[in-house]
């Protein structure tokens, strides 16, 4: 598997993930150019873009040289010709998470990036249509953030009606 590993541009931290996929940890500045070079390298399809809010899990293990931030954007690329996956984890920032949109490379990331924006509030620069996709337009907040409470409907336990 490692012999097939794509040549990551210098300066990008890589490691081998749990499912024997290659993981890359670019910075926000390297992110777009890394994906572009991976695309040239034979990764024809971007299967998934999602974001993770690491608010309560800041001490996660990352390779040396990667400074953890609260938000992380995880992009999964797939190479049909090499039958290989690569996962790109980019630290997106703390207060105003923002990374480049992959729309010009893979138009199919349009809905996935909108979903990440809608549910976690990660902004994607140069995305053509940065609107909510699953939540109503006037919704406040981003539900998958860890500081967004889980909605609970209070259950009232009333006394059973008496025998009368």
């Amino acid at each position: 598997m490692t012999s097939l590993a794509p040549v990551a541009p210098p300066g990008v931290v890589t490691s081998t993930g749990l499912a024997a996929d290659l993981c890359c940890y670019p910075t926000r500045e390297q992110y777009f150019s890394l994906i572009a070079s991976l695309k040239c390298d034979g990764f024809e399809m971007c299967v998934d873009v999602c974001a993770v809010d690491y608010l309560n899990f800041a001490d996660r293990s990352l390779p040396d040289g990667v400074a953890p931030t609260r938000f992380e954007v995880v992009t999964n690329l797939l190479s049909l010709s090499k039958k290989q996956r690569v996962r790109v984890r980019v630290q997106a920032g703390n207060d105003r998470p923002e990374v480049d949109s992959l729309f010009t490379l893979y138009p199919g990331t349009e809905a996935l990036e909108r979903e990440a924006f809608d549910l976690l509030g990660v902004l994607f620069t140069n995305h053509p249509d940065m609107t909510r996709i699953l939540m109503p337009e006037e919704w406040e907040g981003h539900p998958l953030r860890k500081d967004y409470g889980v909605g609970k409907v209070p259950v009232q336990f009333k006394e059973a009606p008496g025998p009368r």
Binding site: G17, L18, A19, S61, V74
Partner: peptide, 8 residues
């Protein structure tokens, strides 16, 4: 155990 995985 801590970790992350993508499986398809």
């Amino acid at each position: 155990p801590p970790g992350e995985v993508y499986l398809a």
